[in-house]
Design a protein around this nucleic acid. Structure first.
Length: 574
RNA sequence: GACUCAGUAGCUCAGCUGGUAGAGCAACAGACUCUUAAUCUGUGGGUCCAGGGUUCGAUCCCCUGCUGGGUCACCA
């Protein structure tokens, strides 16, 4: 990288780095730096009456207030910030004041890592601080950090451009208050979930992500290629079919927490890769699963928020069990006034059309009912609600209802107007399952590109016999959203999917030297905006010559300027 | 994918009917021994997203593209 590619501030930081090295200070030392205390415990354990406490802390310099021979800096460690007081003569008790005057005041910058040895005290303004006796450079930062300041809860110069925040999450985590806490909460949610399932005696397992049949859900998969077999593979869209194979294999209960991949859109509630938990337990049914789920969510909410409620947008959501159970056809009837019970596919389609909904001939009865629910009911279930007893057409892996014809033992859990979980009494009749797959194929032939394909090995497993089983799948990212009150999935994913950053292509140096251009002029030419020799054809030779000579002068490069004739000759050779 | 809004200094943002740009913070030089959005004085810093077009002249107007936000569609 040429100096010309860097901003003024980046060049200065690199010069400071070199100067430090010239003074014998390693800006990136290898040795362990022993930390005795964190910002948080220093403040919580401080007592004005106690004897002086010596501490060793380390972190990033996040602000500096320099006043001649004394300075304050804010050090940010993994838990928070602590103020450090540096007095020149305490840091440098002998004649040589370089550590303060040169290293600290000139060569260190906001964003650099330092270790501080000293004692804890309270300043005249009342802030608990560390009085520095020794400072160790632990890491130099070469890029200036956005400076976000807070006073009385108001943020100044916020770093809030979503593109920059998501692409450079490390910066977001560093400078914005509360971001790291959000991800600590996410970790708490997953940890609590895992302990609940482990305590219940279920086994955490891992199943293939690369699959030759992407089954277990209706979604478009990502396709990838396996070179050794010269065969396309799919990224999984669900873990369901593999986990049920394990129930066939005799586990009491199995669960997997992992990523699924769906080749669909991206928006505030969808990311192409997202984390799911799926759980399958033998000898249970969907009623048991509802009871288990509502207790689990109540416990998770308390673990994260200290109480079974959380504010999401304008709503306060209560996870206090039990949650209401509403049959889907009742929900549609209540919200739309239309009773699907006993109606034919054609009658339902006509009703949808009369309401101006975008439906077509490829949609079967199940899909139409699903559309009706989405149109009229889904958004209105803010408080956790189990929507139960879905039509068989939209539930190819679900056991038929024990008493209601045409319906299945399935529930979806709605929270804040969105689906959070989906669960069934699992279909374990292998012949019925085969027929359901065949029906799905018919839907696929009709044009439904999300209908399921037949997984023969899964059918073979069912034919060996699967005990009655209840299973559930839950989106962890959405769970985190409704447990922390976030409205965008990007806010609960550390690295949400973004389009790749565009990199400008530059020609290699050799293509320029082939025209008789000296190597040291190449970065200058590229700085002038001519990134490829091809682009040089387009330029006005006189203006171009002035531009690059101007850059030579401006950046003090000390190169000998080419004449107009020489520049014209370069261009003529292209 | 459609519509819509936006892209200006490292960050947050101004910029008048079109005359090649400003502020605060950050940076640099200096003053200051308990400050805390430190303050004070001075200085430097820009491909105004990119490429075309209109014009004597474009950050500004028009077209195309790129990137992002919002809304809708798709997607349980």
């Amino acid at each position: 990288m040429s100096l010309l590619d860097l901003s003024e501030q980046e060049i200065l930081r690199r010069e400071s780095l070199k100067e430090m090295q010239a003074m014998g200070i390693d800006p990136y030392p290898a040795a362990e730096y022993v930390v005795t205390d964190y910002s948080t415990n220093i403040k919580s354990e401080f007592s004005d009456d106690a004897p002086r406490k010596e501490v060793s802390v380390a972190g990033r310099i996040m602000s500096r207030r320099i006043m001649g021979k004394a300075s304050f800096l804010e050090l940010q460690d993994s838990k928070g910030r602590i103020q450090v007081y540096i007095s020149r003569d305490d840091l440098c008790p002998d004649e040589n004041k370089d550590m303060y005057n040169v290293v600290f005041k000139k060569l260190l910058d906001i964003g650099d890592f330092v270790g501080i040895n000293g004692y804890v005290f309270r300043t005249q303004m009342g802030e608990i601080s560390v009085h520095a006796a020794k400072m160790t450079v632990l890491g130099k930062s070469l890029r200036p950090l956005p400076i976000v300041k807070y006073k009385d809860g108001v943020a100044y110069d916020k770093f809030e451009d979503p593109e920059l925040r998501y692409r450079q999450r490390y910066v977001d985590l560093l400078v914005n208050d509360g971001i790291k806490e959000k991800f600590l909460k996410r970790a708490t949610i997953i940890r609590t979930l895992r302990s609940i399932l482990d305590e219940a005696g279920y086994t955490e397992v891992e199943t293939p992500i690369l699959q030759s049949i992407a089954g277990g859900a209706t979604a478009r998969p990502f396709i990838t290629h396996f070179n050794a077999l010269d065969q396309d593979m799919y990224m999984r869209i669900a873990t369901e079919l593999y986990l049920k194979r394990l129930i066939v294999g005799g586990f009491e209960g199995v669960y997997e927490i992992g990523k699924n991949f769906r080749n669909e859109g991206m928006d505030r509630t969808h990311n192409p890769e997202f984390t799911c938990i799926e759980l399958y337990v033998q000898y249970k049914d969907y009623n048991w699963m509802m009871n288990f789920t509502e207790k689990m969510l109540e416990r998770i909410c308390i673990a994260v928020n200290g109480k079974p409620e959380v504010k999401v947008g304008d709503n306060v959501i209560s996870y206090k069990a039990p949650f209401p159970r509403v049959p889907i056809l009742d929900a549609i009837k209540e919200k739309s006034g239309f009773d699907c019970e006993g109606k034919s596919e054609e009658e339902i389609r006509e009703f949808c059309k009369s309401k101006g909904m975008d439906v077509d001939e490829t949609m079967g009865r199940g899909k139409l009912i699903d559309e009706l629910f989405g149109e009229f009911a889904e958004g209105s279930y803010i408080q956790p609600t189990f929507i139960i007893d879905y039509p068989v057409e939209m539930s190819p892996l679900t056991k038929m209802h024990r008493s209601k014809a045409g319906l299945t033992e399935r529930f979806e859990l709605m929270v804040n107007g969105k689906e959070l979980a989906n669960a069934y009494s699992e279909l374990n009749d292998p012949l019925d399952q085969e027929q359901r797959f065949v029906d799905q194929m018919k839907l696929a032939d009709k044009g439904d590109d999300e209908a399921m394909v037949i997984d023969q090995d899964f059918l073979r497993a069912l034919q060996y016999g699967m005990p009655p089983t209840s299973g559930i799948g839950m989106g962890i990212d959405r769970l985190v959203m409704v447990m922390t009150g976030e409205l965008a999935i990007q806010e609960v994913l550390l690295f949400p999917q973004m389009k790749p950053e565009k990199v400008q292509t530059k020609d290699p140096v050799s293509k320029y030297t082939a025209l008789g251009i000296a190597e040291e002029w190449v970065p200058v030419i590229q700085k002038a905006g001519v990134l490829t020799v091809e682009q040089m054809k387009e330029v006005n030779p006189n203006k171009f010559q002035q531009d690059i000579c101007g850059l030579n002068k401006k950046f003090n490069l000390g190169l000998s300027n080419p004449t107009k004739e020489e520049v014209a000759e370069w261009i003529s050779k292209i």
